[in-house]
Amino acid sequence: MWFRTMLWAVLRGDKAADRVVPPSGFTVRLTLFTSAAMAFLTVFALALSLAAGRLAADWGDVLARSSTLRISAPAGQMAEQTATALKVLEQTPGVLEARALSDAEQQELLEPWFGPDLPVESLPVPRLIAITETPAGYDSAGLRLRLQAEVPGAVLDEHTRWRRPLVTAAGRLRLLGWVAILLLASVTGAMVTLAANAALSANAQVIAVLRLVGATDAYIASAFVRRFTQRTLTGGAVGTALAVAALSVMPGATETGGFLTGLRFEGWHWVLPLCVPPLAAAVGFAATDAAARRVLGDLA
């Protein structure tokens, strides 16, 4: 009930009620600056989170959980070693599928280099085994040791395995970004609470007069809540605009630039910063409302 009254009072506005609380320059500037700075940082934390998320997703796709086993063996042992290797792979936990490429497939792979007429079967071309991994992956050091013992001619080629820890790191970075956003919201709330408390105590006489002439707590609180909500909204909008401007002059993601240049928003993500000012206003609303209720509850 109180919440609805408050929300309505803030959205509707009341010029007369706004005049009742004297304007105080100090808390205005403080609140504006804080919410602008916090919005600025929030947008960057958001960009960081999204970039880290994109990175994790991209690299995760590239990994595609595949690697290759190459077997070079004398012509007579090729079939035997391939069979052994396949058996070893089948027994390795973490390997979803292992399949030896057929001659035709191998020829297709070599075609760009040697042309279509290469007689693959008459050349000592190594045999390739395509390995598909389970999401968890296999223990590559263990597999290497076993292959070394049983299939001396085998070379395990994990093209993208080195990126795996980076993908994990990118995932953590994304989480860190979200934690930062939560912290920024809490700090904004704390600052607004302090500023609102200062404003409420500075206006103790105003509040006493208003109570004396029959103002309800909701009326008094709404005058303060409205003011602080507007300030955090304005500050949040300014900070967001600055941060978006700063981000938009950063170069976009490039193949070689990697992570740092990928900090810009991409596609529909540019819409997300628009949520920051309303969120700042919501934090300002909640913090002032709580502060006003607490202070007013203690008065006669």
């Binding site: 103002a215 309800t216 707590d217 909701a218 509850g297």
Partner: peptide
Amino acid sequence: RDDVAMAR
């Protein structure tokens, strides 16, 4: 508290 405000 609101009743008091109304009484005033």
